[in-house]
Amino acid sequence: NQESVVAAQLIPINTALTLVMMTTRVVSPTGIPAEDIPRLISMQVNQVVPMGTTLMPDMVKGYA
C-alpha cells in the first residue's frame, strides 16, 4: 500500500511547506504520494490544513 503525505500539524493558509509539517501514512483515499515530499518543500497550501489531514493535489499551489 502506498503512503500519502499527511499534515503533521495545523498548516495555516498560504504557508510554505517544510519537512517538519508533513508525515506519511497509508490512507484512503490516497493523496499526494510520499515520494513527492521533496517536491512539496517550499510550496504553499491554498487552504487551512488541519493536523492529520491528507494533502491532496488541489490543496498545494502549483502542484497539480
Rank of each mutant, 00 (worst) to 15 (best):
N1G: 13
N1F: 15
Q2L: 15
E3D: 12
S4I: 02
S4E: 00
S4Q: 03
V5Y: 02
V6N: 02
V6F: 02
V6E: 09
A7Y: 01
A8C: 06
A8P: 01
Q9N: 07
Q9M: 08
I11L: 12
I11K: 00
I11R: 00
I11S: 00
I13Y: 12
I13V: 12
N14D: 12
N14L: 05
T15M: 05
T15V: 04
T15K: 04
T15F: 05
A16W: 05
A16K: 12
A16G: 08
L17F: 02
L17I: 07
L17A: 00
L17D: 00
L19C: 14
V20N: 09
V20H: 09
V20C: 08
M21E: 02
M21Q: 04
M21K: 03
M21S: 04
M21G: 02
M21C: 03
M22D: 01
M22E: 01
M22C: 06
T23D: 14
T24C: 05
S28T: 14
S28V: 09
S28Y: 09
P29F: 06
P29V: 13
P29R: 03
T30S: 13
T30H: 11
G31K: 02
G31F: 02
G31E: 02
P33H: 08
D36I: 06
D36R: 12
D36G: 08
D36M: 11
D36K: 12
I37G: 07
I37D: 00
P38C: 04
R39V: 07
R39Q: 09
L40E: 00
L40P: 00
L40G: 00
I41Q: 08
M43A: 14
M43P: 00
M43V: 11
M43W: 04
V45C: 04
V45Y: 00
N46I: 09
N46Y: 07
Q47V: 07
V48C: 15
V48I: 13
V48W: 08
V49K: 00
V49W: 02
P50K: 13
P50R: 07
M51R: 09
M51L: 10
G52H: 13
G52I: 02
G52Y: 06
T53W: 08
T53L: 12
T54F: 02
T54N: 02
T54K: 03
L55K: 00
L55V: 08
M56Q: 13
P57S: 12
P57R: 03
D58V: 13
M59Q: 06
M59N: 04
M59K: 02
M59T: 04
V60K: 01
K61D: 07
K61Y: 09
K61M: 10
G62R: 07
G62Q: 06
G62Y: 05
A64D: 08
A64N: 10
